[in-house]
Design a protein around this nucleic acid. Sequence first.
DNA 1: CTCGCAAAAATCGTATGCAATCTTTCCTGA
DNA 2: TCAGGAAAGATTGCATACGATTTTTGCGAG
Lengths: 237, 237
Amino acid sequence: MNIADQTFPAVDSANEDRAQTIRDQLRDAIVDRRLAPGTKLSEGEVGTLFDVSRTVARAALQMLSFEGLVRTERNRGAFVANPSPEEARQVFASRRLIEPGIAIAAAGRMTPAHVAAFKAQLDEEGRFIAERGPNARRSEIKASGDFHLLLASVAGNAILQRFMEELVARSSLVIALYGRSGVSSCGHSEHMNILEALENGNSERASALMLHHIDHIEADLDLRVRGGPALRQALEF
Amino acid sequence: MNIADQTFPAVDSANEDRAQTIRDQLRDAIVDRRLAPGTKLSEGEVGTLFDVSRTVARAALQMLSFEGLVRTERNRGAFVANPSPEEARQVFASRRLIEPGIAIAAAGRMTPAHVAAFKAQLDEEGRFIAERGPNARRSEIKASGDFHLLLASVAGNAILQRFMEELVARSSLVIALYGRSGVSSCGHSEHMNILEALENGNSERASALMLHHIDHIEADLDLRVRGGPALRQALEF
DNA sequence: CTCGCAAAAATCGTATGCAATCTTTCCTGA
DNA sequence: TCAGGAAAGATTGCATACGATTTTTGCGAG
């Protein structure tokens, strides 16, 4: 897969920072797996695709590299990240540490508006699971991540929210790479249980459910190294 | 305080990324309080000081803005961050969530070499506390942060380590801004207690001590808004 | 046909230039 | 004297240019 095969919506909200817009689009493409891990993102190509100069494209790539979604090598360029099993484990270890606390914080701040937003989110999630098709799975992974991001935004801590944005994005990459199959529908019901606990203000239960949920997601991964990591990296897969 | 009043060591390890070196130096200057919150960091000045073009200076400032140490405003430039009391609370809320878990992870991975490194670190910390002088306090804050960074590196999770780097740096800013006085010596003894628990592999105790330690640090802050935050921001203080 | 090496092409790192925006200065009129 | 506003200056956003490094291509020897 080459980045030139992608098409990107025009950058219309021009007033804002263009590099940020490009970063968001590339992040979506990576998380959606439209850009495969290892894909080279050359500054020139990105610039041409988004109709900006290399300067702006470079800034966007730098941002993604901070988030761990792309890896940059000096004088060689930027590549869509290809997380190792060890990195995958660290992503989930971090989530286990942070997300139960976020669930507790969110439980104490739920409003009816939040509940409605969660319901809408879970509805959409359910719809993607019902669908069966090539990009339904992508949408499903994305929607599942959005549930966790919504939770983080309710928790009301901007720093933790940013951490979660990074962790969720990296998780999506990891799931795409190492995911076995269908914990997803199971995950959907777990999301609903978590929401129920949140609605009842039962923070302890929400926290415990979240912890189990993360364990389940990770348990669905196959993190055995296959073929040796050196070869994989050498082949840029 | 103006950035031009600062002096920076020459960038000698030239082979590496120059923007990164500049970022590190600026970060040290901010954390050490040699650059006051609100100080303008113009691309041109930074470039001149480090003898690079604005392109490179800009990249360094962008990195710092990702870490939350500088705030950038479009068409206006970059300023040393001036965390609000609310931001300060969020920093410590994040640390309360993450650091006890880091302590647990670290307790299971301590080696004699790690213990020695911690002892050296605590010795240095004690030396700075003994000293009394204008920049002894700076060094003290920095050394105190280094203890937490050392702990994070022992925990062996690169992602959490990066999160902690950001949180410790922002904490240093917060302490410099809102710190009352001398919990620091008290903090030193708490560090020693934590190390003791780590040495004994008593992860539960290390975790609990860490949580209290963070509480103590935050309790020493005076987070009441003085003069109204709008005014402060308007005056760039 | 394959291997090795040199030339060509592509890509990156960085400096610099120009237009747009913001800030400061200074002048004018009340 | 002071408010208002225009012009000058400073600074940022972005594009482009050029040397340095890497990758690819092409060619000749074995």
